[in-house]
């Protein structure tokens, strides 16, 4: 990374402690916060193996072994939530994933730097909006009383309310994700595009490759690593499809189509105070997610790519 501090070669531990005292002090606040709010909850996972009683606390609640998991796996609502999560993940993978790539290619072909900067700042913007705001905007535009139906009604056409229709819910949430995140998603691809050696394009052009051949043989191979990395991340997050987005809309479309694993854990863990069941659902999700990340990386390695970490 960098040269060792030049004024001291290989100092002993005590000398390093004195030398790095300030550095260690600087790290303390962050470490304390992480210990309290990230590591302490790991012990809280014990509640998944207990009949957790808020009055008795984690230390004094009765042990349940795997009873909570038996309850969880016997609950049809849990399987419904799992099915919805996987389905929504799959649809988002198919419909969302290619859009940032296409957008990045399109933007990369714009020659004027000022135009590119302008478009970039506009498409990044919705990423910074809250889900409440995005869903409110969608509701105002596409909802029963929204702009689209205003227009349809005033032209005596059939109205169409996508915001409360369970069967088209998947399209609604996917288009929300596209609107909010597709622009931001181009960041990685633009970075990868700017790393492609321009000499390659010139050489290919001299050899007679047209712009589409150049895209196929130079640009897309240049993006391959990033695309695989993004796929690995997406696969590892297959069980997280966006918690707040579903929490806000769950009541409008009903839990049959809008319940996902995270909202399940929330409703049965906190809203009904069945903490142990909720913790069990959360633990199940974490374990499967870790397995998915691991598996996706293996897959990436099989294709000769780095994925999230190297072999």
């Amino acid at each position: 990374m960098s040269t060792p501090r030049s004024w001291q070669e290989r100092p002993g531990r005590r000398i390093r402690l004195r030398r790095d005292r300030s550095l260690l002090i600087m790290v303390v606040p962050a470490v304390v916060l992480l210990l309290v709010f990230n590591y302490a909850p790991l012990f809280g996972l014990l509640t998944a193996f207990q009949y957790y009683d808020p009055l008795a606390g984690v230390w004094n609640s009765d042990w349940a072994g795997f009873d909570q998991f038996h309850r969880l796996f016997a609950d049809p609502l849990f399987w419904g939530a799992l099915k919805n999560t996987l389905y929504l993940s799959l649809v988002q993978l198919v419909l969302f994933f290619p859009i940032p790539i296409a957008l990045a290619l399109l933007l990369n072909s714009v020659l004027s730097g000022r135009m590119r900067n302008f478009i970039q700042s506009v498409v990044y913007l919705p990423h910074f909006f809250s889900w409440v705001l995005v869903i409110t905007i969608f509701q105002q535009l596409l909802g029963g009383a929204g702009a689209l139906n205003q227009f349809l009604r005033s032209h005596d056409l059939q109205t169409w309310d996508i915001t409360t229709n369970p069967s088209t819910f998947v399209l609604l949430v996917t288009s929300q994700v596209v609107w909010k995140e597709a622009g931001w998603g181009i960041v990685v691809f633009l970075a990868a595009l700017s790393a492609v050696n321009p000499g390659l394009y010139e050489a290919a052009a001299v050899d007679g490759a047209g712009r589409f051949r150049r895209m196929w043989h130079i640009t897309l191979p240049g993006l391959r690593g990033v695309i695989v990395l993004m796929l690995v991340l997406r696969l590892g997050n297959a069980l997280s499809v966006g918690f707040e987005q579903f929490l806000i809309q769950r009541d409008a479309v009903g839990h049959e189509s809008a319940e996902v694993l995270d909202t399940y854990a929330f409703y049965y863990g906190i809203a009904t105070a069945d903490y142990s069941l909720g913790a069990a659902a959360g633990l199940f999700k974490s374990v499967i997610s870790l397995l998915l990340i691991w598996g996706a990386n293996k897959l990436a390695h099989c294709f000769g790519e780095d994925g999230l970490y190297r072999r």
């Binding site: 709010f37 909850p41 790991l42 809280g44 854990a265 929330f266 906190i270 903490y275």
Partner: peptide, 16 residues
């Protein structure tokens, strides 16, 4: 480690 392993919703809620 905290980026990959988390207690999740309920345990965090209980700690807070």
């Amino acid at each position: 480690v905290t980026m990959f392993v988390s207690g999740g919703l309920i345990p965090t809620f209980l700690v807070v």
